[in-house]
Simulated scan of single mutants.
Amino acid sequence: MALQTQLITNFTSGELSPRLEGRVDLARYYNGCRELKNFIVHPHGGASRRGGFRLAAEAGNPAKPSLLLAFEFNAEQAYVLEFFEDAAGNGKMRVFKDSGLVLDGGGAVYALGSPYAQADFARLRHVQSNDTLFLVHPDHPPRTLTRTDHAAWAFAEIAFTGTPEAWGPGNQPTAVCFFEQRLVLAATPGEPNTLWFSRAGDFFDLRTATREVPLDGWRDVEIADNGQNATDGRAGNRFTLYAGDASFQGGSALKGRDPSGADIRYYRY
């Protein structure tokens, strides 16, 4: 009996698992391949060879691996950041934009010194907010990488208010994200199951509780159940109230009115 070659024109099943070999009872068996390499499958069934790559630049140090991170501020301002270690063992960073390297004002390739060497790349984690990248690593204090122009970037160690006492050399957060306008850091080597949340709207304040009064003229007032002290607020709780200064308003201030008719505000954490 002559061997018959079956014509296949539909590849929408992609690559099939070896466990499906011989499963001629499945319709998808006839729409898949054992291996489909360097091809793009089209929704209507066909497949075409993928496009080639264009060399944008040699690696910062071809002798050692680099780390590439995406940085996208908007559709017009998107970058690829290359972290690498130079021949002297120093951390460096270069910036790619529009399929090429960003140059400085003198026409040379822009390069920035980086606190992260090749040994740090595997455990470096990041999250982005607008023009700022937040970076964490177990052996480095949390840092920001801020962009002010195509060739103007800066690393800075974050000066938190209320830095946890548990943090220290070799025991820094290893994960970072945002949640409900808070910066969340987590999983130091010494406390792998602990999360630290910043205050809402302030990524750099990690205090868990405070009654600090930063302005003159503040006073503590008990908000009574009968509302004699204020018509807005939770009964029985103590808040810091401030009379006057109409400029103090915002998401952290709740406005009320006392029996005398004067506006009062308390700062709520």
Rank of each mutant, 00 (worst) to 15 (best):
residue 21 E to K: 15
residue 248 F to T: 03
residue 153 W to Q: 09
residue 139 D to C: 02
residue 129 S to V: 11
residue 213 V to H: 11
residue 28 R to A: 12
residue 37 K to R: 13
residue 260 S to L: 15
residue 35 E to H: 05
residue 46 G to N: 09
residue 135 L to I: 05
residue 261 G to N: 04
residue 162 G to S: 03
residue 69 L to C: 05
residue 135 L to Q: 05
residue 14 G to K: 04
residue 25 D to R: 07
residue 97 K to M: 14
residue 167 W to R: 07
residue 50 R to H: 03
residue 237 N to W: 00
residue 200 A to M: 08
residue 191 E to S: 09
residue 195 L to W: 11
residue 154 A to S: 15
residue 204 F to R: 07
residue 59 A to F: 06
residue 94 R to N: 01
residue 2 A to G: 15
residue 138 P to E: 08
residue 167 W to Q: 07
residue 122 A to Q: 03
residue 244 G to P: 09
residue 212 E to D: 13
residue 212 E to F: 14
residue 28 R to L: 13
residue 47 A to G: 04
residue 118 Q to H: 06
residue 180 E to K: 14
residue 255 K to G: 01
residue 21 E to A: 14
residue 145 L to A: 04
residue 224 A to I: 04
residue 70 A to C: 10
residue 231 T to I: 11
residue 46 G to D: 06
residue 238 R to L: 12
residue 181 Q to D: 15
residue 7 L to K: 10
residue 50 R to L: 07
residue 87 A to C: 07
residue 64 K to R: 13
residue 11 F to D: 02
residue 130 N to C: 06
residue 150 H to E: 14
residue 143 R to T: 13
residue 124 L to I: 04
residue 39 F to K: 03
residue 194 T to I: 10
residue 81 L to V: 00
residue 163 T to E: 15
residue 130 N to L: 14
residue 144 T to I: 11
residue 219 R to K: 15
residue 15 E to N: 11
residue 257 R to Y: 11
residue 19 R to C: 05
residue 236 G to T: 00
residue 108 A to F: 05
residue 117 A to P: 00
residue 229 N to V: 12
residue 60 G to L: 00
residue 56 A to H: 02
residue 231 T to P: 00
residue 172 Q to M: 13
residue 143 R to S: 09
residue 233 G to T: 02
residue 103 L to N: 09
residue 185 L to R: 00
residue 39 F to A: 09
residue 66 S to Q: 01
residue 160 F to R: 00
residue 108 A to L: 08
residue 127 V to G: 05
residue 195 L to T: 12
residue 154 A to R: 15
residue 269 Y to G: 03
residue 83 F to W: 03
residue 215 L to G: 03
residue 84 F to E: 01
residue 191 E to N: 10
residue 229 N to Y: 14
residue 187 A to D: 10
residue 132 T to M: 11
residue 24 V to I: 12
residue 200 A to Y: 03
residue 146 T to H: 01
residue 24 V to W: 11
residue 258 D to G: 14
residue 133 L to W: 04
residue 85 E to K: 02
residue 87 A to M: 07
residue 162 G to N: 03
residue 153 W to R: 02
residue 234 R to H: 01
residue 225 D to E: 08
residue 179 F to T: 11
